[in-house]
Protein backbone atom coordinates (compact mmCIF):
# COMPACT_ATOMS: atom_id res chain seq x y z
CA UNK A 1 0.00 0.00 0.00
CA UNK A 2 1.57 3.36 -0.97
CA UNK A 3 2.42 5.71 1.93
CA UNK A 4 -0.05 8.54 2.28
CA UNK A 5 1.57 11.82 1.28
CA UNK A 6 1.68 14.45 4.01
CA UNK A 7 -0.35 17.50 3.12
CA UNK A 8 1.59 20.73 3.52
CA UNK A 9 1.19 24.47 3.10
CA UNK A 10 -2.02 26.45 3.17
CA UNK A 11 -3.97 23.31 2.37
CA UNK A 12 -2.72 21.65 5.56
CA UNK A 13 -3.66 24.69 7.64
CA UNK A 14 -7.14 24.77 6.19
CA UNK A 15 -7.60 21.01 6.52
CA UNK A 16 -6.64 21.04 10.22
CA UNK A 17 -8.82 24.07 10.96
CA UNK A 18 -5.64 26.04 11.68
CA UNK A 19 -6.99 29.48 10.77
CA UNK A 20 -9.91 29.15 13.15
CA UNK A 21 -7.68 27.83 15.95
CA UNK A 22 -5.17 30.66 15.55
CA UNK A 23 -7.74 33.45 15.35
CA UNK A 24 -9.91 32.09 18.16
CA UNK A 25 -6.91 31.37 20.39
CA UNK A 26 -5.49 34.84 19.87
CA UNK A 27 -8.86 36.46 20.53
CA UNK A 28 -9.37 34.45 23.74
CA UNK A 29 -5.98 35.29 25.22
CA UNK A 30 -6.26 38.99 24.32
CA UNK A 31 -9.81 39.20 25.68
CA UNK A 32 -8.86 37.30 28.83
CA UNK A 33 -5.90 39.47 29.68
CA UNK A 34 -7.77 42.65 28.73
CA UNK A 35 -10.58 41.74 31.13
CA UNK A 36 -8.05 40.87 33.85
CA UNK A 37 -6.26 44.16 33.19
CA UNK A 38 -9.54 46.05 33.44
CA UNK A 39 -10.48 44.30 36.66
CA UNK A 40 -7.16 44.99 38.34
CA UNK A 41 -7.28 48.60 37.22
CA UNK A 42 -10.56 48.92 39.15
CA UNK A 43 -9.61 46.62 42.02
CA UNK A 44 -8.16 49.37 44.20
CA UNK A 45 -11.31 51.44 43.73
CA UNK A 46 -13.53 48.52 44.74
CA UNK A 47 -11.35 47.89 47.80
CA UNK A 48 -11.41 51.59 48.71
CA UNK A 49 -15.21 51.61 48.35
CA UNK A 50 -15.59 48.54 50.57
CA UNK A 51 -13.20 50.01 53.14
CA UNK A 52 -15.09 53.30 53.25
CA UNK A 53 -18.35 51.48 53.72
CA UNK A 54 -16.87 49.45 56.55
CA UNK A 55 -15.38 52.57 58.10
CA UNK A 56 -18.73 54.30 58.05
CA UNK A 57 -20.46 51.41 59.80
CA UNK A 58 -17.76 51.27 62.48
CA UNK A 59 -17.81 55.03 62.89
CA UNK A 60 -21.57 55.15 63.56
CA UNK A 61 -21.49 53.79 67.13
CA UNK A 62 -18.64 56.16 67.85
CA UNK A 63 -20.84 59.09 66.85
CA UNK A 64 -23.54 57.85 69.18
CA UNK A 65 -21.08 57.92 72.12
CA UNK A 66 -19.94 61.32 70.86
CA UNK A 67 -16.45 60.68 72.16
CA UNK A 68 -14.17 63.59 71.37
CA UNK A 69 -10.90 63.00 69.58
CA UNK A 70 -7.54 63.66 71.21
CA UNK A 71 -7.10 66.86 69.25
CA UNK A 72 -10.51 67.98 70.41
CA UNK A 73 -9.79 67.18 74.08
CA UNK A 74 -6.34 68.74 74.25
CA UNK A 75 -6.84 72.07 72.59
CA UNK A 76 -4.55 75.05 73.20
CA UNK A 77 -7.13 76.62 75.47
CA UNK A 78 -6.89 75.08 79.02
CA UNK A 79 -10.52 75.95 79.64
CA UNK A 80 -11.53 74.02 76.56
CA UNK A 81 -9.40 71.07 77.67
CA UNK A 82 -11.08 71.10 81.09
CA UNK A 83 -14.53 71.25 79.47
CA UNK A 84 -13.73 68.25 77.27
CA UNK A 85 -12.30 66.27 80.15
CA UNK A 86 -15.46 67.03 82.13
CA UNK A 87 -17.55 65.45 79.35
CA UNK A 88 -15.43 62.30 79.55
CA UNK A 89 -15.84 62.02 83.30
CA UNK A 90 -19.59 62.53 83.68
CA UNK A 91 -19.90 58.97 84.94
CA UNK A 92 -17.90 59.90 88.06
CA UNK A 93 -20.57 62.23 89.40
CA UNK A 94 -19.98 65.61 91.03
CA UNK A 95 -17.11 64.61 93.30
CA UNK A 96 -14.45 62.06 92.59
CA UNK A 97 -11.01 60.88 93.57
CA UNK A 98 -8.06 61.71 91.34
CA UNK A 99 -7.26 58.02 90.92
CA UNK A 100 -10.73 57.50 89.34
CA UNK A 101 -10.05 60.40 87.00
CA UNK A 102 -6.68 58.89 86.14
CA UNK A 103 -8.36 55.51 85.38
CA UNK A 104 -10.78 57.14 82.95
CA UNK A 105 -8.01 59.07 81.19
CA UNK A 106 -6.03 55.86 81.02
CA UNK A 107 -9.02 53.92 79.65
CA UNK A 108 -9.42 56.45 76.87
CA UNK A 109 -5.70 56.23 76.06
CA UNK A 110 -5.20 59.92 76.64
CA UNK A 111 -1.51 60.75 76.61
CA UNK A 112 0.26 61.88 79.80
CA UNK A 113 -2.71 61.57 82.23
CA UNK A 114 -0.55 62.55 85.24
CA UNK A 115 0.62 65.77 83.62
CA UNK A 116 -2.87 66.62 82.42
CA UNK A 117 -4.34 66.16 85.90
CA UNK A 118 -1.52 68.22 87.46
CA UNK A 119 -2.07 71.02 84.94
CA UNK A 120 -5.82 70.98 85.49
CA UNK A 121 -5.21 71.20 89.26
CA UNK A 122 -2.69 74.00 89.06
CA UNK A 123 -4.96 75.93 86.69
CA UNK A 124 -7.74 75.58 89.24
CA UNK A 125 -10.11 73.56 87.09
CA UNK A 126 -9.97 70.69 89.55
CA UNK A 127 -11.10 72.01 92.93
CA UNK A 128 -10.15 69.99 96.07
CA UNK A 129 -12.82 69.17 98.61
CA UNK A 130 -12.07 68.59 102.29
CA UNK A 131 -12.78 64.83 102.06
CA UNK A 132 -9.86 64.17 99.73
CA UNK A 133 -12.08 64.24 96.68
CA UNK A 134 -12.23 66.78 93.87
CA UNK A 135 -14.91 68.42 91.76
CA UNK A 136 -14.81 70.38 88.53
CA UNK A 137 -14.79 74.16 88.70
CA UNK A 138 -18.01 75.42 87.18
CA UNK A 139 -17.24 76.59 83.64
Amino acid sequence: MPEMETIKGIEAITMHNGWAMAVTGAMIVITGLSVLSFIISKLHKVIAFLENKQKKTTEEPATKNSQPTLAEIFSDDPGETARNCQILTTELGNSFELCSLFSIFHRHNLPHPHITIRNLRSAGFLVPQKDGKFHWKSL
Binding site: G18, M21, A22
Partner: peptide, 10 residues
Protein backbone atom coordinates in the same frame (compact mmCIF):
# COMPACT_ATOMS: atom_id res chain seq x y z
CA UNK B 1 2.42 31.15 19.37
CA UNK B 2 -0.46 31.31 16.90
CA UNK B 3 1.74 32.32 13.99
CA UNK B 4 3.96 29.33 14.71
CA UNK B 5 0.93 27.08 14.99
CA UNK B 6 0.07 27.96 11.40
CA UNK B 7 3.69 27.59 10.27
CA UNK B 8 4.03 24.17 11.88
CA UNK B 9 0.80 22.98 10.28
CA UNK B 10 2.03 24.27 6.93
Amino acid sequence: IYFTLLSALA
